[in-house]
Each structure stands twice: as C-alpha cells, then as structure tokens.
Design a protein around this nucleic acid. Structure first.
Length: 961
RNA sequence: GGGUGAUUAGCUCAGUUGGUAGAGCGCCUCCUUUACACGGAGGAUGUCGGCGGUUCAAUUCCGUCAUUACCCACCA
C-alpha cells in the first residue's frame, strides 16, 4: 500500500474492476430473496447536483448492503427526458448560438438538437454516477423516450382512454405565455411583487336608463384592469349589506359596454377591495368556478402569446361557442401585450371619467417555475386524467401500510394532498415528449391507438379520409409515473420485471412527492395486477431525504452562485476555478462580488480532493430526518480524515501481519483479555449496525462505525496490542490474527458506505487471510463473533478493560498537570484495597508501562508511607505520582476543590430525592436502588477526594509554609 | 388563511419507553513517540425556546405562547 491515501489513485480503477467483472449484475437464477431499487431518473438537463449525490449514496448503501446479505440485487438506472426543462434549456442554447427562436429553427431540427444534447448529458451524468460508485445494472439502462418506453406509454394511454379515465375538455388552466404551454398547479410558484390596484367605476344600468347621466356606479378594485374585457358579472357577498339593494341589477362594463348582472357569491370577500369583485371566468381560476356555479358565459380576449385579440371568443359555461354577447374589443387594443393593454385601458378609462383611484398594493403573482414568466390563467382545450378513484386507491395502500413513508410524518402531507387532488392535466403544448396517441379526422372525431395504421384497421377508416395526429405531448410526469414497471421491462414481460416488481424502496426528495411519487402509486395500482387481479404497488417503502442547502440553509442554485459540484469534492478544485464556475452566466457585478466574497469565506483555498468515499460517508452522516440539510465542507473533511485513518491503520496492520514468520490462522483466534474485549465491542457494533440499517438511520450508522474504529479499535486495541507484540512473544500471534480478522470484518461492514477504500484494503489483506474470492462487494455482511466465554466473564472483561483505560487516562491527565514530558518515564505507587484488582495489576501491568510510559509500579500496603505525591483514586485503587514543585500542588488543590464542589452538588441532588417521601413511595424500586447505589458511589468518591486534598494540603503546609 | 416540522454546547445536528444530556467541527493546553499532524493526549462549554399542566420526578408527555422553516390555498 502507498504511504499516503490518495483516493484518485484507487477509485476509478476499482469501479472498472467491479463493472467489468459484472458484479453489479443481478442473477437470472431464482434466489430466495430479491432486492430492487429503481433510481429516480435524473433529468437530462444538466449534471448531477449534491442532492442527487446524496440520494445515490443512500441508494447505493442499501443496494450494496442487500447484495452482501446474499440477495439477488438490482439497481435500475435511467434518465428522464424532462419535457419543459429540457426544451427550455436547448431553446435558450439555440437562441444564444444561432440567434433563432425554435419556430424559426423548425421542429425537426429542434428535436434533432435535443437528441444531441441528450447524448452529451447522458455521458456526463453516467460518468458522475460511476465516480460516485453507484453499483447500478448498466446493461438495463433506459431513457424515458426510448422506443420501448414509448410503446408502453401509448399502450397505457389506450387502456386509460378505454376505461373512460382520459377526457379532453376546455377548462381554465395555468398558461405559460413564454413557453406557450399549459403547466400544472405544482409548476406555478408565487412571488410577492409590489404593484398597483386600480379602482374602476362600473355604471349601474338602471340608473343610466333613468337619467342618461352616469352618476351612480359600483366601484371595483382590480390589479388586472385589462381583464374587464372578459367580465361577465359582478359578485357581492350575500352577507354584505352595502350591496344588498343592487343584487339582481346590471352594470355596464366600461369600454366594451357589455351589460352584466350583479350576482351573489361567497367568493366576494367583504373585507377585500370594495367588497364587490368582477367575474372573468376565462381568465381567472376562482372566477371560473363562480362562472360554473352561476352558469355564466366565458369570454376569452387573449391570444396564447398574451396579446389582445381583435375579437373576443365567447363560450357558454360548457365551453361551447355562443353569441350571447358581442365580441367587440376596442381597436386601439388589438394585438398589444396584455401589460401594455393594461396601461392603455387605464388611460382610456380616465378619459371617460370612469377611473376612481389607484393605490400601491403587494400582489401575490403566479410565475412559471421554469420560464419565470407571469402565468395567465386561460381557457384551453386539454387532455385530463380522471384521478378520483385512482387517488382513493393510492390513499388506501398507504393507510393499510402496504406502502410506508420514512419518516412517517410525510404520510400526513401525502394524505392531505391526495384528498384535494384535481384531475391531472396530462397534455402539454411542447415538442419534446411523448406525442399523445390520438388522431382526428376532419370533423374532429377522435381515434386512439398506437399508430395510424392500426387505427385505420381498427376503426375501418379508408385512406382517403385524412387523419391528423394530436400535436400535444404528454406531461413528463405521465411517463415518469410508469417508471418502476416500464423500466424493468413490463411491456416485454421480462424475467427481471417478474423478479423485481414491486420494488423494495424508493429514495427521493420530498419536493416531488406530489409531482411524481403520488402518480407512480396511482398508475402502478391501475396497471399492474397480480395473478389474482389484485393491484400491485410500485414500492414497499418510500425513504424521503432532506434537501441539501448551503451552510446557511439556502437552496443551492446557479443564480446564487453557491453550487458545489459533487465531482469537485471528489477531485478537488482550485479557488480560481471554483469562482469561474460559480460566476459563469452571471452578469450582475454586485452579485459577482457577493459570490466571490462568500466563496472566499467558505473555500478560501478551493477544495482539496476528498474522494468519493469521504463524500459518501459525509452524506450518510448528514442523513437525519431533517428537511433541510445545512451542508458544510467540514463534515466531508472529517470523513476524509476517517478514511485516512482507516488507510493508516491498515498499513500498520499489514506491517504487523505480512511478516515471514506469521501466518493467519482463524482457528487460533484465542481470546486474550484484549482480543476478547475487541471481539465483544465488535459484536456490539454489528448489532447496532443491523438495527440502524433497519431503521434507515444512516447518520447513526456512520457514527458507530467511526466510533468503533477510532475509539475502540485504533485508540485502544491497536495501541495496547503494541505492548503485547513487544512484550509477550507467545501471544503476538493471536493479536495479529485478531487485528487482521477485525479489520477484515470491519471493512465489510463499512463497504456499503465507503466502497472504494474498503475494497482496496480488502484486496491487500485477503491474500494474508487466504481468501480466494474476487471482491468484497460479494462477501457477506459479518455476523457477530462467536465467543465461548460466558456472559459473566464477558462482563468482567469489559469491566477490566474499562478499569485499565481509566488508569491510563488518569495517568495521562496527571502527567499533563505535572508537565512531564510525554516520554519521561515515571515511577508510580499504588495502594490497592481489592485483592482481585491486585491480581489484575500483577497480570497486566505491562500494558501500563508501554502505553503510559511508566518506569516502575510499586504496590504499597495500606500503612506504608507514601512519598510526596499527587494522588488519584480509581475504583478501589489509590494512585500516587511523586512530584516536586509548588505550582503543581497549587494547581492540583484548585482542581480537587472544583471536583469536590461538583461531587457535593451531585450528592445533594440524590439525597434530596431520597428524603422525599413521595419519591420513595411512588418511584419504581429499580430507580430507587439505582439512586442509592449512585449515592454510595458518589460518597465514596467524595471521601477519596477529601482525603487527597488532605494529603496534599498537609504536604503543602509542611514543606513550604 | 389551512397544515406540517423545528427550537438541545460558539456552529451543524443526535438523543431520552420520563430518572439533570452526547457527536462532529470550532476553541484552549500539551505532544512531531516508526500506522497516522488529514495525527495523538487532555480540557472547557449547556437554566435542552418562554410559561402553565400531568407526575415522586419533565429536556422528554399534554396545553399554550414566541421565534423560525417549509407545504397547500391566494392576481379584488
């Protein structure tokens, strides 16, 4: 092994070794148990970010663990075409490079360019996965627009259509003007913007008729005056006394002179605006509902690009064109963007004296999540999936516990959302995606099928009738919702599908529970039935991870310039390169300055290479139940340090065990006090390891592995074993056996989290242990070590070693107090009350001599005179170290007094309890016993402390004062 | 407005079937002893968000308030 741990030198090679040997492949043989995870397919829009790396780590830990448990294991990998996101990013690219928008560029060319983009992205993303160590089944990788995937999508669309679950309807929906597509509610994000509210006078019709003089109005507040072009009613609250008298009357809409009724509806809020609200069903989500309630017509005045039409389109409440109103729109508004039209309208209204006032107002504006443009609710014809029944079934399987969330509290979120779910709008006006498998003839009859040929045959349509394919594509989440079964080969009914579906666990962020997880559950329940026609679930468990933010808790985003690329953590990056990456595409100078300062603060010297193992270990450590994870480089550093420690300890063990005269022999694993101790500790580790894995507590898992290896194995076992190797020639074989054995077992325990370094070291030591198998990946998770000693003697062993540790720690402490140099050998004197401990000392004093640099140990009788010393007592032993010098003594007196004070407080606390009659009456006997025992211990301790103080003070007084 | 979580050491977070609390990082002191300074040894640090209730006992259970984060709804 190289002297220094440099992850770069080992990781890539090991990954190739695993992959080439097919270790990631599931077997086609029948196994007792199967284990499968389907990876949430990353979008092809860009690289994997920290969140991906985090989730992949969790998945790989589970996959590797289960593989090592001897299960037939599959981690399914693939990519998502990500409709809107990809189309946007490529569109932007084309605009930048070719100065053309996509309409100028052309559909065919555009699609071709996206495929090229996909190829590039795929390469990058898959490379990242390899660097992270993802043990995925590469041969089965799949893309959501692959031919087979498309076939499945079409087939499922057909089934849903046949079952009357899919319908097309004109409804109001969120329209993205920039992308010119409908988007779902979930893709709309709200922002608070300071804007204006305008108050406009709507003349009352009855008054006009009477006096020909506009002097009575109803005043309406609106932030979107242009929508008056689509007004069909004014609503007031039934409880609002101010407007009671006007109910049933009519007003005239300014500019278009449309006569519309005043109606009552609970939507009108007495406290908001003027209390009456204009109703524009074609351009407002709430008004749409009011329109349906009151069977009002819908007037659409806006084109899909957000400009004002020349003539309004008028529909009845069912969406059927009517002529109940004039389609007149003032000429001077034609063709203008709705925001410009707004200004023009205000101007004109002022002119005709119908303007009342305006005021500043904070508006909660809807924006497209992707395009970042203001969303206009619009009447459009879209395809919907009826999810009424599907959602109920999905709620059932979670309620039954067939699917469970980890952590559990996400179930509440899931239920409340699923209960209020609307029908799913599955069509999008995009080019990149699955075309909806629908054909129309010239009179808009609808035909469903997977291609035109089949449809003509099926419906017996002659060739002279022209069929036109639906232009819309399906929402990305439609194909994603089929991911678990289609990716496994549902269409072809493959062996793999039959073996591994339903999958075991889905690992995902909470941000896509509604987008994706809920839909997967619904679709799978609908499509997949077992032999008894019982619906199948897509996965048994859902592990929800937190989202990774920067160390202040902000989301990592390119525009904030706080992104950390997982590959940069693995390979390292200089400060300058990091800055370059972070300010790329950012033009605002202040922002650049800010990013620079922030980066300087957190990564003053860039990032040094950490390696994939350290990164993975850090993710495991951070994976608590928290929703937001404050990610910090320090954690990765401490994890890298752990890997280095593992590396160095292995070098030491290799040094010890690759000697010519030594041969590993597992049978001679005889338990000396030390070997027995580490075996017991190891067994505790294994038990906890399994427990935490069962609970999906990877943070605790990482913690106990670290604790065992550092605090037990390195700090005590290896250190103490040195004295055996030096001193006891008979036992050194056993010690070498044990250290090798424990190391090898530990490597297997740690492998799922830190696969590279464990494999590397394992390859080095396997020869020494005569292991012929190829890889640690396919070894088994270690079981507890069989210990022949009785439980009692195990307990005793733990006690003895902990006693030994106490003495050593105490000696070290005293040494520091006295300011002895570390390697200055000191004589110590002991007074021992307990004969058992006396025995212990005579047996194991060589440990002390080596590790605590003791020159000699003299055991005194109770009455023997003691040289001038500072004293410590541990259990039933008094420990004396002879000293000279005033300062030490003074220091020691202060320390002792402090300890005495603390001890007295502790004793008081317990005594108070024991005096309390209620406590004695009601507390369980065990608790009382425990407290009593503790009191005795504390009191003993106190008396010893007092005695020490006495001795020291005496010494102090006699000698110097 | 409806909902869900969080509040524990300077920071990031664990924990307790109720019996005065832990880790990592940071900080202080000492040590370059042949596995390891990406190390070792030792140390300091907390009215466990406030108030009230249940209980012999509350950081833990219940109520309430405060702060904070997020989810859903919301363009008068």
């Amino acid at each position: 092994m190289d002297k220094a741990y440099i992850p770069k030198n080992i990781e890539k090679e090991l990954y190739n070794f695993w992959n080439k040997n097919g270790f990631f492949k599931p077997s086609k043989r029948k196994y007792k148990k199967n284990f499968c995870i389907v990876m949430p397919p990353p979008n092809i829009t860009g690289n994997l970010h920290m969140g991906h790396a985090f989730q992949h780590t969790i998945m790989d830990i589970l996959v590797r663990y289960n593989r090592m448990q001897g299960k037939n294991t599959l981690w399914q990998v693939g990519l998502d075409h990500a409709g809107i996101a990809t189309q946007m990013i490529v569109e932007k690219n084309i605009l930048k490079k070719k100065k053309k928008n996509i309409f100028e560029y052309g559909v065919k060319k555009f699609i071709h360019t996206i495929w090229k983009w996909k190829k590039k992205s795929e390469k990058k993303i898959y490379n990242q996965m390899r660097r992270l160590g993802d043990s995925v089944f590469w041969e089965n990788k799949i893309f959501t627009l692959d031919k087979n995937f498309s076939k499945s999508v079409k087939k499922i669309f057909n089934n849903l259509y046949k079952d009357n679950l899919i319908y097309k309807r004109k409804k109001i929906s969120n329209w993205d003007i920039k992308l010119q597509t409908v988007i779902s509610d979930l893709e709309v994000k709200y922002k608070d913007i300071s804007g204006k509210i305008f108050y406009i006078k709507y003349p009352l019709l009855s008054y006009i008729n009477k006096t020909q003089n506009f002097c009575k109005y109803i005043i309406i507040g609106t932030t979107r005056p242009e929508t008056l072009l689509g007004d069909v009613a004014i609503a007031v609250n039934p409880k609002d006394v101010r407007y009671k008298k006007f109910i049933g009357e009519y007003v005239v809409v300014p500019l278009v002179n449309r006569v519309i009724p005043i109606i009552i509806d609970k939507l009108a809020n007495i406290d908001k605006g003027t209390g009456c609200v204009k109703i524009t069903p074609a351009h407002d989500l709430n008004d749409y509902k009011v329109g349906l309630r009151h069977k009002l017509p819908m007037i659409n005045f806006m084109k899909n690009n957000g400009t004002v039409r020349n003539k309004a389109k008028i529909y009845d409440f069912n969406g059927i064109i009517t002529t109940c109103y004039s389609s007149y729109i003032p000429k001077e508004l034609h063709g203008y963007d709705r925001l410009i039209a707004r200004k023009k309208i205000i101007k004109k209204i002022k002119k005709i004296n119908l303007f009342h006032s305006s005021s500043k107002h904070i508006i909660h504006l809807p924006y497209g999540d992707r395009s970042n443009s203001i969303i206009e609710p619009m009447l459009t014809n879209q395809w919907y999936l009826n999810v009424g029944l599907l959602s109920k079934k999905a709620i059932q399987v979670v309620k039954n516990g067939n699917i469970s969330f980890i952590p559990k509290n996400y179930e509440k979120m899931f239920f409340s959302w699923m209960k209020n779910i609307n029908d799913w709008c599955i069509s999008r006006q995009l080019w990149w995606g699955h075309r909806i498998p629908i054909w129309y003839d010239s009179i808009f009859n609808v035909y469903v099928g997977s291609n035109e040929k089949i449809i003509r045959k099926k419906y017996n349509i002659p060739n002279k009738i022209i069929l036109k394919k639906e232009n819309d594509v399906l929402d990305t989440w439609f194909s994603s919702s089929l991911w678990t079964f289609v990716s496994l080969g549902w269409l072809e009914n493959t062996k793999i599908f039959n073996m591994f579906h339903p999958t075991n666990i889905l690992v995902s962020g909470f941000d896509i529970i509604f987008f994706w997880i809920s839909k997967m559950i619904m679709m799978t329940l609908y499509i997949i039935k077992d032999d008894n026609y019982i619906s199948n679930i897509p996965f048994k468990k859902i592990y929800i991870t937190g989202l990774i933010g920067d160390d202040e808790g902000n989301k990592m985003s390119k525009s904030k310039g706080n992104v950390v690329d997982p590959l940069d953590l693995i390979d390292g990056i200089t400060f300058n390169d990091l800055i370059k990456k972070r300010v790329k595409n950012i033009t605002n100078k202040n922002k650049i300055e800010k990013i620079f300062l922030n980066t300087k603060k957190i990564f003053p010297n860039g990032i040094s290479p950490m390696g994939a193992d350290a990164l993975r270990l850090s993710f495991a450590k951070l994976s608590s139940n928290n929703r937001y994870i404050h990610w910090n480089i320090n954690v990765v550093e401490s994890c890298r340090n752990f890997c280095t420690k593992l590396w160095n300890a292995s070098i030491f063990i290799l040094m010890q065990t690759s000697k010519k005269y030594y041969k590993f022999d597992q049978l001679s694993l005889k338990n000396s006090i030390l070997d027995l101790w580490i075996s017991i500790k190891f067994n505790i580790l294994v038990k906890k390891y399994k427990k935490y894995l069962k609970q999906y507590r990877f943070d605790l898992l990482a913690q106990i592995l670290n604790k065992f290896f550092r605090n037990n194995f390195c700090d005590w076992y290896l250190e103490l074993s040195k004295s055996i190797i030096i001193n006891d020639k008979l036992k050194k074989y056993n010690v070498r056996n044990t250290m090798l054995f424990i190391l090898e077992s530990f490597l297997r325990l740690a492998h799922p989290i830190i696969p590279f370094i464990t494999e590397y070291i394992w390859q080095k030591i396997k020869k020494l242990m005569f292991i012929k198998r190829k890889t640690i990946m396919l070894e088994s998770i270690p079981k507890t070590i069989k210990i022949t000693e009785s439980l009692n003697s195990q307990k005793k062993n733990l006690k003895n070693i902990s006693f030994l540790k106490k003495i050593i720690i105490c000696l070290r402490k005293m040494r520091l107090y006295i300011n002895f140099k570390k390697n200055f050998l000191i004589p110590i004197f002991l007074k021992i009350e307990n004969p058992e401990i006396f025995l212990f000392f005579s047996k194991y004093n060589f440990f002390l001599k080596k590790i605590a640099y003791i020159k000699s140990i003299t055991i005194l009788k109770t009455d023997d005179l003691v040289p001038f010393s500072i004293v410590q007592s541990i259990d039933q032993v008094q420990l004396f170290i002879p000293v000279l010098g005033v300062m030490t003594i003074k220091k020691e007196i202060i320390r002792l007094k402090m300890s005495i004070k603390k001890m007295i407080l502790k004793i008081m606390y317990i005594k108070k309890k024991l005096i309390n009659s209620s406590f004695m009456r009601f507390a369980p006997i065990i608790v009382i016993k425990k407290q009593k025992k503790q009191l005795i211990e504390f009191e003993q301790e106190l008396s010893k402390l007092l005695q020490q103080l006495k001795i020291i003070c005496k010494f102090n007084v006699n000698k110097f004062y």
